[in-house]
Simulated scan of single mutants.
Amino acid sequence: MSTTLGVNRPEQASYMLRAAASNAGRAYKQQLIDLLDISPGQTALDVGCGPGTDLPALAERVGEHGTVIGVDRDPAMLAQARERTSDLHGVDVREGDVHALPIDPGSVDRAKIDRVLMHVEEPVAALAQLHLATRPGALVGLVEPDWDTLAVDAQDLETSRDFTRYTTEEVVRHATIGRSLGRLAEKAGFRVETVVATTPVFRDFADADHTLGLGRNMQQAINDGYVERDRGERWFAGLAEGSFYASFTLVTVICSR
């Protein structure tokens, strides 16, 4: 197990698949799909579907008479999503941007957008596109982290706090959007039905390093002069010694059209 700071980001599709396969990933995704209450024959939309991780589960819920639409703007992601769903009936993978969804207005019964809004340019504009795409009575599930709540246990608590501040201020475009989802959804015209906060916990250093970007983001913080090199390197090396703990808050909002 390496305790050397790294600067390379993991390949995006493999990163998403590994995160989804983790215990925390499986738990919140199952919760989201359950809360959406998808019925056979409905049309379900996955915005920012990535490599198609969730498309099979949606296809199972809508059944043979339903339709699942996955939208992503990354050609590499789309290729994997199409391959993953090639033997599934009623799955349509489309290239498109969250700000201009390739969806007929009022054609969707259920929709989800999972850990995408924190990266987009205009989250409310993206939610307005979802509002346009959905039918009256439709349910929409939104899931985003609140990176301001990222907690990494270390003897050097101040450096852990600096790491969280750097993540929030420099790494993620909309780092605290999780806490704002309900307000933003209402601004886009939705009615908030359910808000659930969960806390993914990481006890394995290697998994946390991969998912939370401990090494690569600390290296960026050092390069940007946010943390002194010796302090940052000692902090990261110390995380691999003994028991490890990290967590953050993940917010799920279910809203209706």
Results as ranks from 00 to 15, higher is better:
38 I>M: 06
185 A>G: 10
28 Y>F: 09
166 Y>T: 06
77 M>K: 04
148 D>H: 13
207 D>A: 13
233 E>A: 09
235 W>M: 06
4 T>K: 14
241 E>F: 01
113 I>M: 15
235 W>G: 05
164 T>C: 11
144 E>I: 02
115 R>G: 04
63 G>N: 00
163 F>V: 03
15 Y>D: 07
196 V>C: 03
75 P>K: 00
101 L>Q: 13
75 P>F: 02
150 L>A: 03
172 V>N: 07
220 Q>A: 15
72 D>T: 00
238 G>H: 07
76 A>I: 09
200 P>I: 06
141 G>P: 00
50 G>H: 00
81 A>I: 03
12 Q>P: 10
192 V>C: 03
100 A>E: 14
98 V>Y: 05
130 L>N: 14
152 V>P: 03
123 P>R: 00
230 D>W: 10
164 T>F: 02
251 V>I: 15
3 T>M: 06
64 E>L: 12
130 L>A: 12
200 P>Q: 11
121 E>Y: 08
241 E>C: 04
152 V>H: 06
58 L>F: 00
196 V>G: 02
208 A>M: 05
233 E>L: 07
206 A>C: 00
53 T>K: 04
178 G>Q: 11
49 C>G: 10
93 V>Q: 02
1 M>G: 15
91 V>K: 04
167 T>D: 09
5 L>C: 02
233 E>R: 10
82 R>G: 09
50 G>F: 03
159 T>W: 04
192 V>A: 01
201 V>Y: 11
176 T>S: 14
52 G>A: 06
34 D>G: 10
172 V>I: 15
6 G>S: 11
77 M>R: 05
31 Q>N: 11
233 E>Y: 04
231 R>E: 07
149 T>E: 12
204 D>Q: 09
103 I>A: 13
127 L>P: 15
53 T>N: 13
69 I>N: 08
23 N>G: 11
142 L>F: 00
124 V>P: 10
7 V>M: 09
240 A>C: 03
105 P>I: 04
88 L>V: 11
53 T>M: 05
182 G>A: 11
164 T>D: 08
84 R>I: 06
179 R>H: 14
150 L>E: 03
6 G>P: 01
159 T>I: 08
196 V>M: 07
126 A>F: 00
113 I>Q: 13
172 V>L: 00
66 G>K: 07
25 G>M: 05
37 D>Y: 09
32 L>W: 02
13 A>L: 01
4 T>E: 15
52 G>Y: 08
234 R>T: 12
61 R>N: 09
54 D>S: 10
167 T>R: 11
118 M>W: 07
223 N>Q: 12
149 T>L: 09
85 T>Q: 08
65 H>V: 11
79 A>W: 02
154 A>V: 01
87 D>M: 12
243 S>C: 03
130 L>D: 13
